[in-house]
């Protein structure tokens, strides 16, 4: 079989699948608590046995074309929905009524977005349900929760802003537009909860003062930022780039 060491930057999967463009170290780090990694390494040691293990279920390839972009959005929405569901399952101490209303609303919006993509993407092309990794978040702490929410919302806004011109179908472009402005509303509200009546709702850290433009990120920038919050390794290697 191919020796991964001879293909720096690529990890070859068993079963004749295309290599995915993740670093080997990153792949091993995120490959399902070393289970898949161990299986691969074990397989590599045995030259006699053909590889029979199926691709690790923890690997997720978003796919290509417009469907790939839909899966990309679906992945981000899964992440957000899981986060806010956890926030409202174990609310931090001292959560005010106003905060409870806002965070419940946002949770429901993200669940609706997730379910929309799940219904809209053909099952044969749709990515699996992701397993989140929220181990770095202290759900008992308001600041930890709201700062994570801010990160997710700003990341989502920038991701949709960057995905718009990767779409070919004008109807999908409109749908993405319908969602991104809601994510921007979320971002503004979360930011105002953290720093009320300040300029932070559309702060200079996200809206460039000289041109008034919000942050834009392409998948190659968004996925590494989202990866630490997901146990599955997500590959956007086949997503459109122009």
């Amino acid at each position: 079989m191919n020796n991964p060491e001879k293909q720096p930057g690529l990890t070859t999967l068993p079963g004749g699948l295309e290599p995915v463009a993740v670093g080997r170290r990153l792949f091993l780090r995120y490959s399902g608590a070393f289970v898949a990694g161990s299986a691969l390494l074990a397989a590599c040691k045995n030259e006699e046995n053909p590889i029979t293990v199926s691709p690790s279920p923890t690997m997720v390839d978003l796919g290509s074309g417009d469907i790939g972009i839909l899966n990309y959005a679906y992945a981000l929405e899964q992440l957000e929905a899981a986060f806010y569901t956890q926030v409202m399952t174990t609310p931090y101490g001292g959560m005010s009524d106003a905060e409870r209303t806002i965070l419940t609303d946002i949770r429901d919006h993200e669940i609706i977005h997730r379910e929309f993509f799940k219904a809209a993407i053909p099952a044969a092309n749709r990515i699996a349900d992701l397993t989140p990794n929220f181990s770095a978040i202290n759900f008992a702490d308001r600041t930890s929760v709201l700062n994570t929410a801010k990160t997710f919302e700003d990341l989502g806004v920038s991701a949709y802003n960057g995905a718009g011109n990767l779409l070919k179908d004008v109807n999908l472009l409109l749908l993405a537009g319908k969602i991104v402005s809601v994510e921007a509303r979320h971002a503004a509200v979360i930011r105002d909860l953290l720093n009320p009546k300040s300029a932070d709702f559309a702060g200079d850290d996200v809206v460039t003062p000289a041109n008034g433009l919000d942050v834009v990120r392409k998948p190659v920038q968004v996925l590494p930022a989202a990866q630490p919050f997901v146990r599955n390794t997500i590959s956007g290697a086949n997503l459109p780039t122009v």
């Binding site: 802003n161 537009g177 991104v180 402005s181 809601v182 559309a202 008034g212 433009l213 919000d214 834009v216």
Partner: peptide, 8 residues
Amino acid sequence: LQIHSVEA
């Protein structure tokens, strides 16, 4: 789109 989200 970058203006659109700022307006939002």
